[in-house]
């Protein structure tokens, strides 16, 4: 199929960007979206032009590196899938595809379609971990965990931190990401120990970085490639409220 691509080009975070139109021909419906961009880049390199910069790593839908806001949707038209796993069969011959970077104040554009998502790392550093001091590996089954909690914790832990929730949210809110990270620990006994401190620190960091507030529009859940549930946001709200009411320390 032949396509027109309208791609955001921006040489660096310091200069202004603009949309540039490109034509690609003979794209197979079986090609992935990133392979289509590879083909475009090869042709640009052959012409001596600067290739389009975009994030990608595993191309297996698990690393969270790829992004791209395609035709008004993070990770493009398919549901529950990352850009790298999305194939060109989702598009029609002759279609114009608009490709933009994630747009949020805490996600500044580095170059073209690449954004700096280190603000997510900062949120994790604020409390998205379990402190382990010393000791050997505990025996299996020494800490009983209800099956339902194990399942919910695993569902929350499926978050790959790609930032699609922020990109999809009309408020550029990071609540789905942060709530998934809070939930995966809050649901398990190992995570309960630091739960009150964790939720307060992570939410404070999220606010400090300039993410928007949650208005329960649920675009995040609809666009999340790992289909993280907004029930995690409610869980984080509960965790936060109880931490603020009960915790001895404020963070």
């Amino acid at each position: 199929m032949d396509l027109t691509l309208k791609i955001w080009r921006q040489a660096s975070s310091k200069v202004k960007g603009q949309f540039v139109n490109y034509q690609v021909q003979n794209i197979s419906a079986e090609a992935s979206f990133l392979e289509m961009l590879d083909i475009l880049n090869e042709s640009l390199v052959a012409k001596g032009e600067e290739p389009v910069a975009f994030d990608h790593d595993c191309r297996e839908g698990i690393c969270g590196a790829c992004s791209l806001y395609i035709n008004g949707r993070p990770h493009g038209p398919d549901r529950g899938i990352t850009t790298c796993q999305m194939h060109m069969r989702n598009f029609k011959h002759g279609e114009t595809i608009i490709i933009e970077p994630w747009r949020a104040k805490p996600f500044p554009v580095i170059k073209d379609l690449m954004v700096d998502r280190s603000s997510f790392d900062e949120i994790i550093q604020a409390g998205g971990f379990v402190s382990v001091r010393t000791g050997g590996i505990p025996d299996a089954n020494s800490i009983p965990i209800p099956r339902r909690n194990a399942e919910l914790a695993m569902d929350a832990a499926a978050c790959i931190g790609c930032g699609a929730c922020v990109a999809a949210c009309k408020n550029a809110s990071a609540m789905l990401f942060v709530s998934a990270k809070v939930s995966q620990f809050a649901l398990l006994p190992q995570g309960r120990i630091e739960a009150q401190e964790r939720v307060q620190r992570m939410v404070a960091k999220m606010d400090e970085l300039g993410f928007g507030n949650c208005t329960n529009t649920y675009a995040c859940e609809a666009e999340c490639p790992k289909e993280i549930s907004v029930s995690n946001i409610a869980r984080m709200n509960r965790e936060f409220l109880s931490a603020k009411l009960i915790s001895h320390k404020e963070f």
Binding site: K6, W8, F19, Y69, N71, G72, R73, I98, E100, R103, A104, K105, P106, A168, K170, N171, A172, S173, G210, F211, G212, N213, T215, N216, T217, Y218, A219, E221, A222, E223
Partner: peptide, 29 residues
């Protein structure tokens, strides 16, 4: 206050308007 913060969280808008199928009225609170 919340709305002003939300607007400032995305200083550069998308060219293609966001597609989201859920909770229509929430966008116009």
């Amino acid at each position: 206050i919340v709305q002003l913060q939300n607007w400032s969280a995305r200083p550069v808008r998308y060219m293609k308007k966001g597609y989201s199928e859920l909770s229509f009225f929430s966008k116009f609170m």
